[in-house]
Design a protein around this nucleic acid. Structure first.
Length: 906
RNA sequence: GGGAGCAUAGCUCAGUUGGUUUAGAGCACCUGCCUUACAAGCAGGGGGUCAUAGGUUCGACUCCUAUUGUUCCCACCA
């Protein structure tokens, strides 16, 4: 039976082998059957993305949940897939084309898409391959892509349906424009960042002083500006001087005493020379800047509203790429950021710049192009009306049909839904789902006309039914160029994966939907989570999942976000190579608690690797034993087996509880300690056969079988967390037939156990620890036999354990200690003493006892104070009072004993 | 500007409806050990007036109020 196993676990020997085995036997694959389903859909990573630590955490959590459910006998399914990530991917493709000297606008849509597909095929799925290294038990046969045939058809069908329901419309709105990607963004795709910027104070001269003389009102607080030539001017503060070419008014607050004298005048826009009216609106903040606001209806959301209210002209001075257009008249073709700098200089040179102040403000940036400030822009886009969706998506979360972990995100969710804005779903991109709408020839000056349909044929049929278009030819229909927002496909994910849109009520959607748990980051609660709930309620009248586990962000040890620039993001595959997938999984899980950011450090993965090794060596120990059918079971073995069985059951119950509350790190830590502390440090040490006559004694059959049973249970408990090493060891733990696997074994269930067994064993543990401390303090060899005296209540089962683990030759239960010198300690109210002839430092012992007495007396004072408080005795529950009385009695006993001892020493 | 969360050992966090021997874990740290499973290990040990100030209560880490610090989300102050 002697095994020639190395003393270090080598993950590379096991991981690839078992993953292949699982794949070959299709253990990850699921088909609908009679069992209870358990379903997780992966948050689809970008098709061209590579694995980072966030994915490691997120996918490890999913795999733990899925593997556990599978071992609980459920029909577990984890569906993988990728997302086409329209803006991000298109940007990458445009970038690569640029390297080859190709411009996007020189290509046709078809040519561009060819390049995009080529790129997708080249880089696509790398991330899914990487997930295999982690051990992810996804059903790869079901791998989906948001732009594959079924998913694309689902998107189109939903678009048409929502249009027909009147929920999708086209509207001219002020939208967020990304000048780099040259597409509109949804409000959710704009991230605001604090920025140190400048506030420019500009002179707007009064233009009509000749015909309409300036008359200061003389009001208190009035501020009138005149230059050295006596000309009047107003001062406007702005952060965006480059937009003055679009100014079509200046606005003051009607109640502003500073600027009342400007009322009714016209002013000249500096440099531009355009004469614009001074308008009045309560919107203007009197306290901000000078109280004068320049109004640029085309380039600011508020100004747009003002422009509408006051019937102002709107001048769009930007090109789609953020350079100035012909309409600007000045700086044409220059980038807006360049113009901002230049115009400040020019204004100064023309003596039109009063001053410049430092100013902190928030600037919106594109989520996908973080260096690009979004530009408010007026244009016609496709919108999804959200009121209806907010109404159907709120109740399931508020009523607990869907549970958020942690629950604090319910508030966030609710807030967003209650203040929701319509969703701008069109994007001026080619990579994505092309909007299924066709425009019809429309006479000049008339409202655009279009039809929405699944196919061109349908579109033509629909068009021909419209008045005046009975004879329209196919080539007269012009398909919408825009694509849809990526999230317009993602929101269907839990449905479209089971083809529930194209083929409603099919077997799979009925069986697998709703899914169970979703693991994702809180950063996409609006983008994705909320919208999936909307789609689920709209199309299946049911929630898409029952639980949402929100992970935190993986940061480095110093709390910084991981980024390429900082170089603080470890390569996950490198970590797996170095520490093994199991080590990486355990490492990341140990520091993961729902909703909290996790500060990742490689030492945690090292801890995971070390734990793998611990398991490995425990296995080496157990498999190295000779088994005897004749040898009777020793008392210490009997006690240890009884105790560990109880402990195992207690932990199983605790771990179940932790998992059900999504306290996965607690569950993992529970198993970790059960294995390392309880199983290895105490149980195995108890039953480990001694050496005698130059060889190791055999272990008795009863204990051995029990130990294999425990090991088996432990491997099962560990398997969801550390799938590879557990499979490797389980396969070698007993005789296995071809095709057997740990991953399909049933997870042990907690059985009732006797709490007293655990309590009694803990007495032995405490005594052993104390005796070891005595040895250490006295510098005694761990092997030198000692004897032990016990005074007080003492479980008989403790003796064999103490004898073996503390190397005690004899335990004597005594009524009173003899006069021999020795070291004493207490476990509960039981007093123990290790007689030590000639090795006792009396002075030190006295000091130790006096310190103890002091501690207990302090404690007793607290208890006495409580008990002497009549109100406490009268009001507190009986059990609590009884407990305090027990504390009082116990402490008193202890102090008495200690004093007795003190006296005998003196 | 509005909202939410957090503040417990050097670090990261538990502390489950206020009462379990005057607060627990993991890591880190200190001391001693290469003891035939494991030095990726073993044994032992130190370390916290639970952010501050009030309040409720017989009793507060736990509930309430305020303050300070911190994180996140939302919002059109140029």
């Amino acid at each position: 039976m002697q095994q020639e196993l190395p003393n270090k676990y080598d993950p590379s020997q096991a991981e690839g082998k078992w993953y292949e085995y699982w794949l070959k036997n299709k253990y990850f694959h699921s088909e609908p059957d009679g069992r209870e389903p358990y379903v997780v859909v992966i948050p689809p990573p970008n098709v061209t993305g590579v694995l980072h630590m966030g994915h490691i955490m997120n996918n490890t959590l999913q795999d733990v949940l899925v593997r556990r459910a599978r071992m609980q006998g459920k029909n577990a399914l984890w569906v993988p897939g990728t997302d086409h990530a329209s803006i991000a991917t298109e940007a990458k493709v445009v970038g690569r084309l640029a390297e080859q000297g190709i411009k996007k606008r020189d290509l046709t849509r078809e040519q561009f898409l060819e390049h995009a597909w080529a790129w997708t095929e080249e880089h696509g799925g790398i991330i899914l391959k990487q997930l295999r290294r982690l051990g992810a038990s996804c059903d790869w046969d079901r791998t989906a892509f948001t732009m594959d045939e079924k998913r694309s058809a689902s998107v189109a069908k939903v678009f048409v349906d929502l249009y027909e329901k009147g929920l999708i419309y086209r509207g001219l709105r002020m939208v967020n424009w990304d000048p780099k990607a040259q597409t509109v963004l949804s409000t959710e795709e704009v991230v605001y960042r604090d920025e140190k910027s400048k506030l420019y104070y500009l002179r707007y001269y009064i233009a009509d002083a000749d015909t309409n003389p300036v008359r200061p009102t003389g009001e208190e607080g009035e501020v009138v500006h005149r230059d050295e030539n006596g000309r009047y001017y107003a001062v406007v503060a702005t952060t965006r001087p480059e937009t003055i070419m679009g100014d079509t008014a200046m606005c003051i607050n009607p109640k502003d005493p500073k600027n009342g004298w400007l009322r009714g005048h016209k002013v000249t826009v500096p440099l531009v020379g355009r004469v614009v009216p001074v308008i009045e609106d309560r919107y203007v903040d009197i306290e901000f800047g000078t109280g004068c606001l320049k109004v640029t209806p085309a380039h600011d959301v508020n100004d747009y509203a003002l422009g509408k209210a006051h019937n102002l002209e709107s001048i769009d001075i930007f090109n789609p790429d953020g350079t100035l257009s012909e309409a600007a008249g000045l700086y044409v073709g220059l980038d807006r950021m360049v113009v901002r700098k230049q115009i400040a200089k020019d204004l100064e040179a023309a003596a039109l710049l009063e001053k410049v102040e430092d100013y902190d403000n928030k600037v919106g940036y594109s989520e996908r192009n973080p260096d690009t400030a979004v530009e408010p822009r007026l244009c016609k886009q496709w919108f999804l009306s959200m009121k209806h969706f907010a109404e159907i998506a709120l109740p399931p979360v508020l009523e607990g049909k869907i549970q958020f972990h942690p629950s604090k995100y319910v508030t966030t969710y609710r807030n967003w839904l209650e203040n929701i804005q319509d969703w701008c779903i069109s994007r001026q991109l080619w990579w994505g789902h092309r909007i299924p709408a066709w425009f019809l020839p429309t006479p000049e000056g008339e409202e655009e006309r279009f039809v929405v349909a699944l196919t061109e044929e349908e579109a033509l049929a629909k068009a021909r039914k419209m008045p005046g278009y009975a004879n329209i030819k196919p080539e007269e229909l012009v398909r919408e160029e825009d694509a849809l927002d990526t999230w317009f496909s993602s929101w269907l994910w839990p449905i479209s994966l089971f083809d529930g849109i194209n083929s409603p009520g099919n077997e799979e959607i009925r069986y697998y939907y709703p899914t169970n748990d979703l693991v994702t980051g809180p950063d996409i609660i609006f983008f994705w989570v909320a919208r999936m709930i909307m789609a689920g309620e709209e199309y299946l009248k049911d929630v898409p999942f029952r639980n949402v586990y929100f992970t935190g962000i993986v940061r480095d040890k110093l709390g910084r976000k991981m980024s390429k620039q900082l170089g603080n993001s470890p390569d996950p595959i490198g970590l797996i190579d170095k520490y093994g997938a199991d080590g990486v999984r355990l490492g990341i899980l140990l520091c993961t608690s729902a909703g909290n950011d996790i500060l990742f450090d490689e030492s945690q993965v090292e801890q995971g690797r070390n734990f793998s090794n611990k398991i490995w060596n425990a296995f080496r120990l157990v498999k190295g034993w000779n088994v005897s059918d004749e040898a009777p079971q020793s008392e210490v073995c009997r006690v240890a087996v009884e105790w560990f069985r109880a402990k195992l059951n207690r932990t199983l119950a605790a771990v179940d509880r932790d998992y059900s509350h999504f306290r996965i790190n607690d569950a993992v830590m529970g198993v970790y300690k059960l294995f390392w502390d309880d199983f290895c440090s105490w149980y195995l040490e108890c039953i480990k056969p001694a050496y005698a006559d130059g060889g190791q004694m055999p272990i008795d059959r009863t204990t051995y079988e029990a130990t294999l049973g425990f090991f088996d249970a432990l491997l099962k408990m560990l398997h969801p967390v550390m799938p590879f090493i557990t499979e490797e060891l389980w396969q070698n733990l007993g005789e296995r037939a071809e095709g057997e696997t740990l991953m399909l074994q049933r997870m042990p269930e907690a059985q009732p156990f006797d709490e007293q067994v655990i309590t009694d064993f803990e007495t032995a543990v405490s005594a052993v620890t104390a005796i070891r401390a005595v040895r250490q303090g006295k510098n005694l060899s761990p092997k030198e036999p000692l004897s032990l005296q016990v005074k007080g209540a003492y479980p008989a089962s403790a003796t064999p354990v103490i004898c073996k683990l503390a190397v005690i030759s004899e335990v004597a239960v005594v009524k009173a200690f003899d006069d021999l010198p020795g070291d004493a300690f207490m476990v509960g109210t039981t007093e123990f003493r290790v007689p030590l002839s000639g090795k006792v430092d009396t002075a030190a012992e006295i000091a130790k006892i006096e310190e103890e007495i002091q501690r207990y007396e302090g404690f007793l004072r607290g208890v006495n104070a409580k008990l002497s408080n009549e109100k406490f005795v009268a009001n507190a529950p009986e059990a609590v009072v009884a407990l305090e009385r027990k504390k009082q009695a116990d402490a008193t006993t202890k102090i008495e004993n200690l004093k007795l001892r003190l006296n005998s020493l003196k």
